[in-house]
């Protein structure tokens, strides 16, 4: 895995570490403000709604709906060449935040509003990417 994986990896930092630790354990999470309850993604050093620094990574259901998608026929990184064309999706999680990921498995019946659910792709020893499939 890690020896041959040649796609970009997330840049893990103190602010987003919780997300990637949860993903590694098979849990999808969004940053949740402990002051006002706002849920958002990607990670922000303060809550964009109330500016509190008191935030945590709240586990979510992994269910969502498809907002849009795009099929990449060009590889901007060599690691994606073997996957062309590959499908990127925009998902609205049942809990509210939107997230970009890959739509994997058969998605010939993709349409806006269709139900999707998270699947976990362990790409290296340390990184698991949350992806989505048609529900």
């Amino acid at each position: 895995m890690s020896e041959t994986y040649n796609k970009p990896l997330p840049k893990i930092d103190p602010v987003n570490r919780g997300f990637w630790e949860n993903a590694k354990a098979g849990r999808l999470s969004v940053q949740t403000c402990k002051s006002c309850g706002d849920k958002h993604y990607p990670a922000s050093p303060v809550c964009p709604k109330c500016l509190s620094s008191d935030q945590e990574w709240g586990v979510v259901s992994g269910n969502g709906t498809l907002e849009s998608w795009v099929d990449f026929h060009r590889a901007y990184w060599d690691g994606f060449k073997e996957n062309l064309p590959y499908r990127v999706c925009l998902v609205r999680l049942a809990e509210g935040p939107i997230m970009v990921s890959n739509l994997v498995g058969n998605s010939d019946n993709a349409k806006m509003g269709a139900a999707v659910r998270v699947v976990f792709d362990k790409v290296t020893e340390n990184v698991t990417l949350p992806k989505f499939e048609m529900a």
Binding site: V88, V100, V127
Partner: peptide, 9 residues
């Protein structure tokens, strides 16, 4: 570089 690079977006 962007936060969605791992997905090729």
């Amino acid at each position: 570089p962007g936060v969605w690079d791992p997905f090729g977006f």
